[in-house]
Nucleic acid binder design. Structure first.
Lengths: 369, 369
DNA sequence: ATGAAAGCGCTAACAC
DNA sequence: GTGTTAGCGCTTTCAT
């Protein structure tokens, strides 16, 4: 039942090889290969015999051998910052679904913001000969991916990357969603809006903060320096940042956060100090992770769809890998963002117009799904 | 700079091969192989030359070729139910760390409780020739992994699996943690304790429920049938289950949940109906995901350490893969669970002893970290 | 349209 | 101790 010329050292049952199928179908291994790969020139009669034999033997082509001879592994690398931030699993999931549907496997790795770890990760990806790598760290680890760049692997970055032939970039339109959020708050009457940024050594954190400042400036609302504090995109960071904000002479009436985890930390901090959200202070997040709608109260947030992101990443990667693909020449993909209003934002404290009080039953704001 | 006898079709820069290194170090490819693989019999002088050449050329061994010839891919498969339940990313992370540290790569896949998806996943793992697979779905997908069993892949299951030579099992000791939780509640004075189970077609969900019933029986506390409701291990499920519980003539004074996501849903449901936790009702979870300590209030829960789980899984897998490993004969690994008391559990409503009121400042209970 | 044969990059006998 | 060589399972010329 298995290739006879070898001695299967390992105690695992030897896999059926292309030779076993060829023998059984009474054709050459070349024909089996062609039939299995659906080459159109194969005689239908023989093809049928081959498929029958495949069926009977349970033959599964060996990917390693395929990769070895073709030089392409059909593996896409996906590098994220940390898999424990809920945004990333959602992204990973989408990415994987799309990749698998298109015949690719995914090799995932998280950097945990650790250069040594990243180094080892890149090395492993090189070693496994991935066909391309999507670097979705929202970070600044470009120099760490130097090796991939050198080897001219097709690469996809978020927000920005070196301008090289094999590199494609996903441009997230932070401005539009954040402007929407600021305008939403301003329209409700907020003038004292604080911003909790992400770690400012991250390009995307800076972009989000700048989008906030720009949107505020557009409306002619001044932002005191102490209203922009640096967090680190974790719950802990949000909690701490909010505590700093709460120490100010006057508590802002609204807080916009650079991501949802930060916002969750903020909600926690406010609960600890018995400030009610949104009555006393409005909180708005960014990302729209699944969890956001389950917060207490459900979180108003700017959605950056990880489906959009994943789809663009896979598409951009394939553009780099398969030279005669339609999008092969495209170097940039644009990712939209938009506000999702839930219950963590409302009028500034003490300003709820009497009319509104009457009109509002329980739920105001646009509910999601 | 690259093997000359081939025509690199693909536009990616051809990788340095073992032959390039051999030529540069003026040794045979066998010596390069031996040096790189740290075979002890290599002349130190030659080894030095080899490493120098490796350095200079940036040589990275091609894993595909290695795998092809050795029959071992050094990839461990990891199958989880759904990567969007926060417990799993934590598990994946730990598993990956451990695997990589031990020289293995990880191929992750989620079943999403979808047989077709699982089928494709297993097929892909077969195709990539993983060295072994850990099936950490806490589910009942055994028949779906039939193919892996047939091919005699080393396999690791959680809780239970077929008794075959290549199969190892991680036995989670649900009873101990759940008993602790029940006793904790009972000690506080609770007698009306409800349980929200997971999907009862899952072995582990049944095990948790049974552990609850047994622990209650041990204390002689009766559990009315309507106090055991079936959830589905999601927030949505917890929310819904709690609503059903709230419809009962008398609200239980405590609810124990089959996992943390359920408990989070429960907290949400109780907030909606303005029931205060833990004052009016205590809530206890299971898993101790990272998020649990950030709930409002921080969740009392039974910890099943995913680090323990991951470590046991990797170890058990290696036991199956590497025949002359110490643990090669071991078929079962035991995973402990234990209660972590936080703020979502306290005395039953209306029973807070006056003395305690005084003693208790703000935080009672054991704080974690 | 089909088969024979040459490798893909590497490891592991086996010979020296 | 080192080199030579035979494959691992597959794809892809190149003849036929």
């Amino acid at each position: 039942m298995s290739a006879s010329r070898t001695k299967p050292q390992n105690r695992r049952r030897a896999a059926v090889s292309i030779r076993d199928v060829a023998r059984r179908a009474r054709v050459s291994i070349a024909t089996v290969s062609r039939a299995v790969n659906r080459v159109s020139t194969v005689d239908p009669e023989l093809a049928k015999r081959v498929w029958k034999a495949v069926e009977e033997t349970g033959y599964v082509p060996n990917t390693q051998a395929r990769a070895l001879v073709s030089g392409r592994s059909r593996i896409l690398g996906l590098i994220v910052s940390e898999i424990t931030n809920p945004f990333f699993p959602e992204l990973v999931q989408e990415f994987e679904n799309l990749a698998v549907a298109q015949g690719y496997e995914v090799m995932i790795g998280s950097t945990n913001y650790d250069p040594a770890r990243t180094e080892s990760l890149v090395r492993r990806m090189l070693q496994r000969n991935v066909d391309g790598v999507a670097v979705m760290t929202f970070g600044i680890e470009e120099e760490l991916v130097q090796k991939l760049v050198e080897r001219e692997f097709p690469l996809v970055f978020v927000d920005a990357g070196p301008d090289l032939p094999n590199i494609r970039v996903l441009k997230v339109n932070y401005a539009e969603g954040i402007r929407e959020a600021v305008q939403h708050l301003a329209a409700l009457g907020h003038r004292s809006i604080a911003f909790i940024a992400g770690p400012l050594n991250m390009r995307s954190a800076v972009a989000r903060r700048d989008a906030f400042l720009k949107s505020m400036a557009e409306l002619g609302i001044e932002v005191p320096a102490e209203h922009v504090v640096e967090g680190n995109h974790t719950m802990e960071g949000g909690l701490e940042a909010m505590e700093r904000l709460a120490d100010l002479a006057e508590l802002p009436t609204a807080v916009l956060c650079s991501n949802d985890m930060t916002a969750i930390g903020v909600l926690h901090a406010l609960d600890r100090t018995t400030h009610s959200v949104p009555k006393e202070i409005s909180v708005v997040g960014f990302d729209d992770i699944h969890l956001a709608q389950f917060m207490l109260p459900p979180l108003t947030t700017v959605r950056m769809s990880c489906r959009d992101l994943a789809a663009a990443a896979v598409e951009a990667l394939r553009a780099g890998i398969e030279p005669d693909r339609a999008a092969a020449g495209q170097k940039e993909w644009s990712i939209p963002t938009r506000l999702v209003v839930r219950q963590s934002s409302t009028f500034p404290r003490g300003t709820l117009p009497a009319v509104v009080k009457q009109v509002m039953g329980k739920g105001r704001g646009v509910r999601l799904d």
